[in-house]
């Protein structure tokens, strides 16, 4: 869903033909992601994570934890910056049909400019982070085959090397 949004976002600003359709989809999807991210965050606070696989070194675990926090921060920040940017740009925040959201910031040219730039920069960073996350997960799953994916998905994934629930420390 997030990846779809990033694709819609980058495509719509370059599109002369489909801008309206894409931006009409982009706004409600962004707010949906904001709501889901809050739900996720609450759920995450009350969940104990499964242990890291034994193949991960201490620094890899630290990177994984930091990147998780960064992903959560972006999931919350991007929709909020988008909402704030439309408010500052004096745009109505249309969801669908007659449903629209109130502005969360006063109309202000400078604020609009800063938030508009931040929206793009954060979105590109988000895409790069997802790409790095994807690379790491694929590497663990397809090359190391240490069952890392079992930490992330609710169904069992076959692991050929180690017991996915192993709690042993790396050597």
């Amino acid at each position: 869903m997030v990846l779809t949004m990033l694709f819609i976002g980058i495509a719509m600003v370059a599109s002369l033909g489909n801008y309206h359709k894409l931006v009409s989809l982009h706004r409600p999807l962004g707010i949906a992601i904001l709501i889901l991210a809050v739900v996720r965050l609450i759920n995450r606070m009350f969940t104990t994570l499964p242990p890291f696989p034994a193949t991960m070194s201490q620094w890899e675990r630290r990177v994984a934890t930091a990147s998780e926090r960064w992903l959560y921060a972006l999931m919350l920040a991007l929709p909020l910056v988008g909402w704030g940017m439309l408010s500052a740009g004096n745009y109505p925040i249309v969801m669908f049909g007659p449903v629209h959201l109130p502005p969360i910031l006063p109309a202000n040219p400078l604020l609009y400019t800063v938030l508009r730039k931040a929206h793009t920069v954060l979105a590109i960073l988000f895409f790069l982070t997802i790409l790095a996350h994807l690379t790491a997960v694929l590497f663990h799953t397809l090359v190391m085959r240490d069952g890392l994916l079992n930490r992330m998905v609710p169904w069992p994934v076959r692991s050929t090397k180690t017991n996915p629930n192993s709690n042993s420390q790396p050597k």
Binding site: L3, L131, L134, T135, L138, L142, V143
Partner: peptide, 13 residues
């Protein structure tokens, strides 16, 4: 597996 990782990531990019 390594080739698959590179291919998938490159395709998304």
């Amino acid at each position: 597996g390594f080739a698959a990782v590179v291919a998938i990531v490159a395709a998304v990019a």
